[in-house]
Write a protein that binds this DNA or RNA. Structure first.
Length: 836
RNA sequence: GCGGGAGUGGCCAAACCGGUAAAGGCGAUGGAUUCAAAAUCCAUUGCGCGCAAGCGCUUGUGGGUUCGAGUCCCACCUCCCGCACCA
């Protein structure tokens, strides 16, 4: 039995952490050169390990600690597997919170943001994260946003950025437009207030051009969580069907509609336009319907998007008093305006088939319109108040002219082909994805580099005049246009093309633009001739492992994919997909809840680093459970991990004190062999858990077992050279494998034991001879129930195992006269005797 | 409604290919140490019956496949996440 440790020097995390942080900082340990720079070595593979860059606000929170603890563990693990790891850091510094703070306090967003960056930088260093600080960037730095503007101009030249009037989402509280993606349940993602629909002229990126490629290229990815791919797939929302033209003869207007069910065309009994539809005015101008329609449209536009999309809302609408012609049968059907039709999906107009669409059915019932079934199931009745939309075997078209009797699957291509012959339609693919609205009527963002000239219209700012520097303003309050509009001497400029009077664009860019290419700037951060050199980018890209919160599953990740594809198409980049592998971490909770200031349950990393040291905080984060899952922060758990680290420290101090450096023993016996085998088992398990699955918690648990066994066995090992060598090896191994999680403690202990720097050592490899056991515990079952465990020789043949099993007293009791009808033998594991 | 994920001791969790369910941690109990407490070290700790050897039960519920199921199949219940009047 082990006794209390001899008196040893106590574990002083702060002293150790300060020491190693200074070494890493002074020596630039984590710097990695680019191709062409001194020290560049292409003989080992590169690995780009990247965590999502932080938005600097206040101080880092637990989520940051988790992201960077995971990423750093991986970066260290890969470095020690002979990879050149690039592991940079930067700040997503533009954004609303700093600006809202400025509105309240008058403090310039630059001042508060840079103060926060200083705090983040200091804390990241205090965590001992292995960053190549020479590559640090911030999106609000003119040296950075100059190139954001440059990329915008390239997209503009290529027609991928454009200005257009369109129905857009407006947040009255933040007084700016938003991207569709920034609306959550009809509310502004930032401030939580209901948003409205407005028709405004805005800047867009033509991401819809890339909809199909954004879907197809999921195949190119190495390892992304399936649910993230699914979320993006749903967001892009590809539907196959047909575009069909309905014509208003009286006015000679064609109305194309998109449908996934051209087989139900003969069931169309009316036609509906969205309130935002641009042809509405023309349809009703000068008719009796004009006033009621205008009133309905006004009301629909005033109602918030949240209200409009509320569930179970009764269908409303107004007849237009016009008809359109159904191209398949020449029938004139009435037209309506109704807000259940959305302008942003399809063409903003639909053919209504109440028999086969639940929404159309509800509208038809409310307005007493005919319901005509044109697809019949093979058997069974369909209730009157339910639209028949299923696709079942044996269903057939009815009352559908020449297509009657076909199955829907047959009819869809035939009807579409017929429409095409008539010039009334064609096969079509529709996407739910909308173009990315990038302009914001706010101050703290990257200025959009264009001017408006009375003669020349929209004129890009020439490259040699970039950056368009964000000027200081007096008043940050939003007034429906950007605060920049008030800076008259900045706004007034001359046209770069004709030299005449012109004014600058005063909107700024969505901050997601800044973060759509930052991972490329890290690669060539001081380049002042281009955002990055293609050769350098192609060397490091793609990001081999990207790590961040699942909240960016759609927005950031899709935008960055789009930017990469556009840059690749323009020849600036050699990869289509920026992030080969993605890992989405779970949240840190407190008492089962998200941490938030309003709940008062926020715990800050700094407090725990101060109390226990960074190694404890980081190791605890990695020990809490599988990192992809949410996990509850528990002070008792932190304490447990701290005890473990202290056990490692104290054990090492005692071992250093009582033993002498030596090589690991060659072929030990007894407890020395047992401990050596345990150390090799721990290496094997931790390597697999970290490398294959990111299951740091089980890797750390294996180290706990190794340390526990070392405590249990150490007193029987002291005094014997072989035993002491095994003990030294076990403790050095524990430190070596612990290094990715608790780098300071591990570096200190490893140096004490071996005189070398642990990060310069290759990752340990388990000795196969020591992974194999001479004996194993044979599990003996009778009829599948565990009846005995017998120590058996590892190389015993199957017959011997069966014999051992049958000879067991406990097994014989359970056979008890019955006969063994089957013997199942799993070598090295168990024998199951089936008796009857 | 559509799509995705999850349910294992008092709590967090492990069990990777169908083969000893519960490794590791927290908590709890007992002991050592201490004037005492904290800290530390050691031991016990799924539930039930039993003095004990032992026996039985146990992975949300109910079925099935199998010599053997936490793991595979079917049906259901509960919870979480994403999207949602998407034509």
């Amino acid at each position: 039995m082990s006794t209390n440790l001899r008196h040893v020097k106590p574990y002083e995390p702060h002293e150790i952490e300060r020491k190693w942080q200074r070494v890493w900082s002074d020596e630039g340990t984590w710097r990695v050169p680019n191709p062409g720079q001194p020290g560049f070595d292409d003989s080992v593979p590169k690995s780009y390990v990247l965590e999502m860059l932080p938005y600097p606000s206040g101080e880092p929170h637990m989520g940051h600690l988790k992201t960077y603890s995971i990423g750093d563990a991986l970066a260290h693990f890969r470095r020690r597997h002979a990879m050149r790891v690039i592991h940079p850091m930067g700040y997503d510094a533009f954004g609303l919170p700093a600006e809202n703070h400025a509105i309240r306090t008058g403090e310039h967003p630059r001042a508060s943001t840079e103060a926060s960056i200083e705090t983040f930088r200091r804390e990241f260093r205090s965590w001992g994260i292995s960053i190549d600080w020479s590559r640090e960037i911030s999106s609000h730095d003119p040296d950075y946003y100059r190139w954001t503007q440059w990329i915008f101009l390239r997209l503009l030249e290529r027609g991928l950025a454009y200005r257009a009037e369109a129905p857009v989402v407006w947040c009255p509280h933040d007084a700016t437009v938003l991207a569709n993606e920034q609306v959550v349940d009809g509310r502004c993602e930032r401030c939580g207030n209901p948003v409205e629909s407005r028709r405004l002229e805005q800047w867009f990126f033509r991401i819809t051009d890339y909809a199909q490629r954004l879907l197809d290229d999921f195949d190119e990815l190495d390892s992304w969580p399936e649910h993230v791919i699914t979320m993006q797939r749903n967001w892009i929302g590809r539907s196959e069907g047909a575009e069909v033209v309905f014509t208003c003869e009286e006015l000679g207007i064609d109305f194309p509609v998109f449908t996934t069910r051209p087989d139900t065309l003969f069931g169309a009994t009316f036609f509906v336009l969205a309130p935002e539809h641009p042809e509405l005015e023309r349809l009703v101008a000068g008719t009796d319907a004009e006033d009621p329609v205008r009133e309905y449209v006004d009301r629909a536009m005033r109602a918030g998007i949240e209200e409009r999309s509320a569930e179970d809302r009764p269908k409303t609408g107004v007849p237009l008093g016009r008809t359109v012609i159904n191209p398949v049968n020449g029938e004139r059907i009435p037209t309506f305006v109704a807000d259940y039709v959305l302008m942003e999906y399809g063409t903003g107009a639909i053919m209504a088939v109440p028999a086969h669409d639940q929404r159309d059915l509800e509208f038809a019932q409310a307005f007493d319109l005919p319901i005509r079934r044109v697809v019949e199931p093979a058997e069974g009745e369909v209730p009157d108040d339910v639209a028949y939309v299923e696709h079942t075997a044996g269903e057939r078209l009815v009352d559908s002219g020449p297509f009657t009797g076909m199955t829907p699957a047959e009819a869809i291509p035939k009807i579409t082909a017929w429409l095409e012959e008539q010039g009334k339609g064609h096969p079509a693919v529709n996407y739910r994805l909308r173009d990315w609205l990038l302009s914001r009527q706010r101050y703290w963002g990257c200025p959009i580099p264009v001017v408006y000239c009375e003669e020349c219209g929209i004129v890009p700012v020439p490259d040699d005049q970039l950056p368009v520097v964000l000027p200081d303003v007096e008043d940050y309050a939003p007034k429906g246009k950007s605060p920049l509009a008030a800076v008259e001497d900045w706004v007034a400029t001359e046209c770069p093309r004709c030299g005449g009077p012109a004014h600058r664009e005063t909107d700024t860019m969505d901050t997601f633009v800044d973060s759509s290419w930052y991972f490329l700037r890290y690669l060539d951060p001081r380049n002042d001739a281009a955002p990055f050199e293609r050769e350098i980018a192609d060397h490091w890209m793609p990001v081999d492992q990207y790590i961040g919160g699942v909240e960016h599953a759609i927005l950031h990740l899709m935008y960055a994919r789009f930017f990469s594809k556009a840059l690749a198409d323009m020849g600036y980049l050699g990869v289509q997909e920026p992030f080969a592998s993605l890992f989405t971490q779970g949240m840190i909770l407190r008492d089962g809840d998200k941490m938030s200031k309003s709940k008062g349950n926020v715990v800050s990393p700094a407090e725990y680093v101060r109390r226990y040291g960074a190694d404890t905080a980081r190791t605890y984060i990695c020990f809490m459970g599988p990192p992809e899952k949410d996990a509850d922060w528990a002070d008792a758990g932190v304490h447990g991990v701290h005890s473990f680290l202290r056990r490692v420290w104290s054990l090492a101090q005692e071992v250093i004190d009582r033993t002498h450096p030596s090589d690991p023993p060659q072929d030990p016996e007894g407890p020395a062999r047992e401990l050596l085998a345990k150390a090799n088992w721990a290496i094997d398990k931790a390597t697999a858990d970290i490398g294959r699955r990111f299951h740091f918690h089980t890797a750390i648990a294996a180290l706990m077992e190794l340390v526990n066994d070392s405590y249990r066995l150490k007193d029987s090992l002291y005094g014997d050279p072989t035993g002491e060598a095994a003990l030294r090896f076990a403790v050095a191994t524990a430190a070596s494998v612990l290094f990715p999680f608790a780098p300071h403690l591990a570096a200190e202990v490893y140096e004490q034991l071996t005189g070398t720097r642990v990060w310069e050592q290759p990752w340990p490899e388990a000795d196969p001879a020591l992974l194999e056991r001479e004996t194993f515990t044979l599990v003996v079952q009778v009829n599948g129930k565990l009846r005995d465990r017998i120590e058996a020789s590892a190389d015993a043949p199957e017959e011997d195992l069966v014999r051992l099993a049958r000879e067991s007293d406990r097994v014989r009791e359970h056979i008890d006269g019955r006969s063994v009808v089957k013997e199942i033998v799993i070598p090295g594991k168990l024998v199951n005797l089936v008796v009857r």
